[in-house]
Amino acid sequence: MTAPPVPRPHALRPWARLPLNAHPTLRLGLLILLGTLGVAAWGTVALPGAGQQDLAQSFLPPLSPGHLLGTDQLGQDVLAWTSAGIWVGLEVSLAVVSISAVTGISVGLCAGYFGGVVDALVMRLVDVCLSIPPLLVFVAAAALLRPSMLTLILLISVVAWLPYARLVRSVVLVERERGYLLAARLSGATRRRVLAGHLLPAVSTPVLVLSSLQAGYVLLWEAGLSFLGLGIRPPQHSLGYLIAEGRETLSTAWWVVVFPGAALALLVLAAHLIGDGLRDLVQQDVEILGG
């Protein structure tokens, strides 16, 4: 016998009503993101390969013919390299966010819903891990692993799932207090149905907000590691590596450092704006629905 439908709480799902024209912060964030990606797309498609070296053309300043953002010491086009670095960074970021979200949500749901000793132990562990600086762990580990994009993604995910677990658990604890979960169980729903059908939608919005913020952090971590030489290296492209490369010649060829840095900053800014915008949108929903 199927369980009768239980009235759900206000389903706060922003994608149900994405009023792009309603919220300025969200709009700005999406605008910046799309703008940067557009430039990156153009840089990848319209220009020859990013790794093309031509020593005769090294250290050309921006606005030189054929090199809008200049070239570095090996004659590689900065725009092409930056564009490639943007894509790599996004790839890493999306992969990490996906893996860490899935892991973190699962752990958080179980810990919050089943409670008890398991919950206490897991959360102590999460708290302990969260108080250790992640970059330290990355640096130490990255040195001892064979460098590749996959290991980098897995490494960052090991740290990135922690905030998800904590967030999801606290949301579950709040939702547990409300009656509708008990009502669902009493009307015959299995635990799994309660978790998947009721709790998942409830956490979806805070998770979405957190994900956009995390995407920004992952970008910065990857860039930082690549800057130190422990992350992504040629033939793959990373903004951090480019910045490290341009560091010595900063006084003469500032464009090698400034443009990748600006690209990073714009992406991270977009991530923060989108995250904040989503958060405000949710609060508006809460207010309109009476909280």
Binding site: G216, L220, A223, G224, F227, G240, I243, R247, L250, S251, W254, V257, V258, G261, L264, A265, L266, V268, L269, H272, L273, D276
Partner: peptide, 22 residues
């Protein structure tokens, strides 16, 4: 503030070195 928080810290450091110490 948001813009400042989006800048990578190593980037800020390098630029700072260039601008100030030179």
């Amino acid at each position: 503030m948001m813009l400042a928080g989006a800048l990578p810290d190593f980037w800020i450091a390098i630029v700072l070195v260039r601008l100030l110490s030179v």
